[in-house]
Nucleic acid binder design. Structure first.
Length: 707
DNA sequence: CAGTCTCAGTTGTAT
DNA sequence: ACAACTGAGACTGTA
């Protein structure tokens, strides 16, 4: 035990853009991390022999065809001892750190206990009926068994007060239930995973994001109730926690399976769901060991998010402030007092003596969305010193010096470098910068051109053009309605024709993040009267993310981002010249054009989401785009069999004319400087063999070629 | 020892 | 400005 605590770190191989971190997801343009292999057939254990799973390229893809993720429960031995031991550092047997009783009682099974009782035999959720129960004492008992924990807590707290579910709660409940139903998750939560892996984590985060965005969408269409703060992040998190859609529930010291140094998160809830940091508010997570003499407790992770006066000047050292003392409590009438050596502070003190590794998560400002925060997992640290000092508020504050364990991939230091490049504007301090802005101002953000790999001075000549050149638009048989929302289209405005075209809901959040996956997005067109910053013109508004074109090791030029990218965020569109199919085929034959994008019928964007959230992309009329002579950053995006970007058809209509565009969105959260890739797709016609190319994406289930 | 209660503890969003 | 909600620990009830 003793020696185990200090020595359970095995550096993950490779740097921050290590190919091994690419998720093991089924090929094709599939948004869903799909888990075709039952335990034992995991492609982790046999990456070479993993069968190439292929959806017929011509479709059709009726709803429900894609296997939803069954939440296979791998036995612990498989998870720990089979393929995983090679890829995920877990040198200390997980069991030896598992809190014997208390953590289990308070953690996982606690939830399971509560949430599995209230099922009818059919597994239906008992939901609405109790809300009018006149018997208040009975009521709390009834509610204590209720499915939704948040309701329970509310009701428990406000015993005797208003216990009616608001209309709002009911709405969200039904949304959540239908959401979960589409995952076949309304049943008893036997799905909780002991240990995660990359796919599971990706899947959970995707579910979280979908549900959160879905709730946002429902809330969005409604009038804001004064005095009620809408927290879709908490709502979605609570629901998934109660359903057991989470992993790494048991706390552990050191690395967390499936999470890599440099991974980013946008909500505290996400950290909780994947088991990186359990408390949703507190900055210090710790676990106790009853088997150690005196029931010692050790810190397992800390979040430095700016609430306290932490020092983060040196990227590899963190001066962390203890918790408590009411220093950050905004409530009135709370007295600020000296911090005590208890809870997290005590745990950090013990961790100093035991020298165990502590995960550090750094909360940093999001350049794209200044009101939000990004949580950056910065790897393992050890506590080196502790002391007490008088803080700004005049009370005693505990301070802990944490030092980063060497040999880990860059994360926070990379972040700091990027900040510096940003401030310098010209990025002169950086080696390998060829051009500070290859667009020559054609985009509203610069796009740098960098080569720190070899001597090549840049890609072949082309004209930078930020959008699509149509020779002639598609003519509509009957005129399309344009909106007249001078203040921008509003989510709840059912009179707006643009909202109507999108089945009654705007496809984007207020931050410009795609809300749900649709077969086709109808944006406002040239004749709409709404302003250019209308929420329904996201793909027309230009770059929002600071991108750079860089020389890859073996795939020519590629695209990556300085900014962290949220799942669902718009990245760029595919610019170029719209050409006709026959021209394209000619170019193909002569191997003239490697920059052709086909959006023709059923091929292409097969990105789908699980369950009912899947929609087959609908392309109203086929287009072929050539970006050989003119194009934008999208022409540099490489193919990846496990992509982090997908494309989506977007229609912009104007009176009798219709323009189809191809917009790229992030599949998952993408850390800065990670290469952006999308799936170039599979063969859709006999001619396709001519386009077949060898794939160098390097992902675990690379299918070896693309088109 | 199991169940119930209290409260510390910050965040994200609305104003 | 504010309400959101988990988990730990304290407390209570039962075997």
């Amino acid at each position: 035990m003793e020696q185990g605590l200090g020595s359970n770190y095995i550096p993950t191989s490779g740097g921050p853009v290590d190919k091994s971190r690419v998720l093991n997801v089924r090929p094709l343009r599939c948004l869903v991390p799909i888990f075709p292999s039952p335990p034992g057939m995991s492609s982790f254990s046999s990456p070479q022999t993993a069968p190439f799973m292929c959806v017929p390229p011509t479709g059709p893809f009726p709803p429900g065809v894609a296997p939803f993720y069954p939440f296979l429960v791998p036995t612990e031995t498989q998870a720990v001892h089979s393929g995983f031991s090679n890829t995920i550092p877990s040198p200390v047997p997980i069991n030896s750190f598992r809190t014997p009783i208390s953590a289990v009682a308070n953690g996982g099974t606690g939830l399971s206990r509560r949430s599995s009782k209230n099922r009818t035999p059919e597994g239906a959720v008992m939901d609405e009926d109790y809300s009018d129960s006149p018997n208040q004492s009975d009521f709390s008992m009834h509610v204590a068994d209720h499915d939704h924990e948040y309701t329970t807590r509310k009701a428990g707290k406000r015993k005797g007060n208003s216990q009616k579910k608001t209309r709002n709660d009911v709405d969200i409940d039904s949304v959540a239930n239908s959401f979960l139903a589409s995952f076949n998750l309304t049943g008893v939560d036997t799905y909780r995973q002991v240990d995660g892996d990359k796919e599971l984590i990706r899947y959970i985060l995707m579910m979280y994001d979908l549900l959160r965005r879905r709730i946002t969408q429902v809330e969005d269409g409604k009038e804001a109730t004064p005095g009620v703060t809408r927290r879709p992040d908490l709502r979605a998190g609570t629901i998934l926690m109660n359903k057991g859609v989470r992993t790494n529930v048991n706390k552990r010291i050191g690395a967390v399976p499936g999470i890599e140094v440099g991974d980013i998160f946008f909500f505290r809830m996400e950290l909780c769901l994947v088991g990186l940091h359990a408390p949703i508010m507190a900055g210090i997570d710790f676990m106790s060991f009853k088997d150690i003499q005196g029931g010692e407790r050790l810190a397992v992770s800390v979040i430095s998010s700016g609430g306290y006066d932490d020092n983060t000047e040196d990227g590899d050292v963190l001066i962390y402030s203890g918790q408590g003392g009411n220093i950050n409590r905004k409530d009135k009438d709370v007295e600020i007092m000296d911090q005590k050596l208890e809870r997290g502070n005590l745990a950090l003190e013990k961790s100093l003596r035991r020298a165990n590794e502590v995960r550090v998560i750094r909360g940093v400002k999001d350049a794209v969305n200044p009101t939000g925060k990004v949580y950056l997992y910065d790897g393992l640290y050890t506590v080196q010193q502790s002391w007490v000092e008088k803080g700004k508020s005049g009370v005693n504050v505990f301070k802990y010096k944490l030092v980063r364990v060497p040999g880990q991939p860059e994360a926070f230091t990379m972040w700091k470098s990027i900040q510096q490049w940003r401030e310098e504007d010209t990025a002169t301090s950086r080696t390998g910068v060829i051009l500070p802005d290859l667009t020559s101002g054609a985009e509203n953000l610069p796009v740098s051109l960098v080569n720190d790999v070899d001597d090549e001075k840049g890609p072949a000549y082309f004209t930078y053009f930020a959008s699509l050149k149509y020779q002639k638009p598609f003519n509509l048989p009957k005129p399309s309605l344009s909106c007249s929302c001078r203040g921008g289209c509003q989510p709840g405005d059912l009179n707006c024709p643009c909202v109507q075209k999108n089945a009654g809901v705007l496809p984007y959040t207020a931050l410009g993040v795609l809300l749900i996956y649709k077969s086709l997005i109808n944006e406002c067109g040239p004749s709409c009267l709404c302003p250019p910053n209308c929420r329904n013109r996201i793909s027309q508004a230009g770059l929002k993310i600071r991108l750079e074109v860089f020389k890859t090791k073996d795939k020519g030029w590629g695209l990556r981002s300085w900014d962290p990218i949220r799942a669902g965020a718009f990245v760029c569109e595919y610019a170029g010249e719209v050409i006709d199919v026959s021209t394209a085929q000619e170019l193909e034959r002569e191997k003239e054009d490697n920059y052709i994008f086909y959006a023709t019928g059923t091929t292409g964007s097969l990105e789908v989401t699980p369950g009912n959230f899947k929609e087959t992309p609908r392309i109203p009329f086929p287009i072929v785009i050539s970006a050989k002579n003119c194009g934008n950053v999208a022409r540099f995006m490489n193919h990846g069999c496990t992509p982090n970007i997908y494309w989506q058809p977007v229609l912009r209509e104007s009176d009798n004319e219709s323009y189809l565009h191809i917009a790229f969105f992030a599949i998952s959260h993408i850390p800065p400087m990670k290469e952006l890739t999308y799936d170039y797709g599979t063969a859709q016609s006999g001619k396709a063999e001519q386009r077949k190319k060898k794939c160098l994406c390097g992902s675990l289930n690379c299918r070896g070629h693309f088109y």
